[in-house]
Computed example of a mutant assay.
Amino acid sequence: MTIAVSTAGLSPALAEKAHLKPLAFHDLADWAADDHGAAFQAFRRSCEALLAKQPELRPAQSLSGNLIAICRKALAESALSGAKARRFFETHFRPFEIIPKTGEGFLTGYYEPEFKGSREPSAQYKIPLLDRPDDLVTLAKGETLPGLDPELQAARKTAKGYEPYPDRAAIEEGALGKKAKPVVYVREPGEAFIIHVQGSARIRLEDGTIIRVAYAGRNGRPYTSIGKLLVRRGEMTLEEMTLEKLMGWLRDHPTEARALMRRNQSYIFFREAAELAPEQGPIGGAGIPLTPGRSLAVDRNLWSYGLPFWLEGQLPFSLDQAEPLARLMIAQDTGSAILGPARGDFFFGSGHEAGTRAGLLRHTTRFVVLRPHPVP
């Protein structure tokens, strides 16, 4: 089958991995039924940061001039809803289905967990979330350092030069010494691990106060999914896997769980995000608070933040119940496991219910990118 594709303006990395098939908006299932006003507000929030040149937490592909021009148009509007918001996207963007050259579109979910914790260690709270060490050097996309594996995305600065940063096992065994101070303590290694995977958390202290922790860096080592490892070992099937089952297994098998979690060499550092209001979402890779149901994590090596993506698939409620997914989302985050042109992570929000739904989402999904159309 011959696919009509567009390559204009594509980065070499993206052109190598996917075809983009031009569509019309009427080709998008239930396009007119979506809440375009909610999508516009999320897009406008991205535009505020983009035009202010606010630093990205995890830098992505550079912006196109067309997207910047559209952002200026968006900021000239205080609020758009309904048909007006829909027409804004239809006027300023053109839809292209993303057709990976290998595999197919795949969507997972993530959330901001909430766990009990303490600012001081105790018999109950003894697992630290560490702050960013001063000797951690984060490498920009495509940057390398002499003598280091080019696959590493961070390094340790020493008096003699640079070396690979310690992996998870070494850090947990004390390799950083006093270079990384605890931000807060939680109860279980499994809780800390989930916070590492999600990249943020709400921590409820003994007095009821909630503090927020946000991503502050990583050791640059490769990410490995322990859920996939459990499935390969036959502990549970992929269809049975939920966040509750995973947490339960880690809790019930402490010795095996420790070894399993260390198979994931990646280690995340945090900071206290005191600037966030309780009603705001956590900070994403773009450096702005995420919006539940509208913020999408994408492969930052292929896409820029602020791009709208239309998704078609299923949103599960349980292992055997789901609702149709037909939604416009905005690229505002990224993740170590989010790799590929049609690979995304759907932000569900904060707390237990959001976590339950996030853990159920691992579905084949149709990805359509809305590419900026030149502003007259």
Rank of each mutant, 00 (worst) to 15 (best):
L145V: 05
T108Q: 09
Q332R: 12
L152E: 12
A33T: 06
T209F: 03
V375N: 06
A273F: 13
R45H: 13
K17V: 06
P12C: 01
P282F: 13
S318Q: 07
L28V: 04
L339I: 15
G220M: 03
I99G: 00
E239A: 15
L250E: 03
V137Q: 12
Q321G: 03
P308H: 08
G82P: 05
L307E: 05
F348N: 03
S200W: 08
G65C: 02
T7S: 07
E239P: 03
N301H: 11
P341R: 14
Y125K: 11
A8Q: 09
R58S: 09
P55D: 07
I194A: 09
R204P: 05
G349D: 07
I210P: 02
R44A: 13
R58H: 00
R119D: 02
L107N: 08
A342W: 08
A140S: 14
E188L: 10
G190W: 03
K17R: 15
V183A: 12
G285V: 15
Q198D: 07
E244M: 12
M261H: 07
K179C: 01
R343C: 01
K53Y: 01
G306S: 05
P55F: 10
Q265S: 14
A170P: 00
V184F: 02
R187M: 08
E235Q: 06
F309I: 13
A52M: 02
P324M: 15
Y162V: 03
E151L: 07
I68L: 12
G344T: 04
G9V: 06
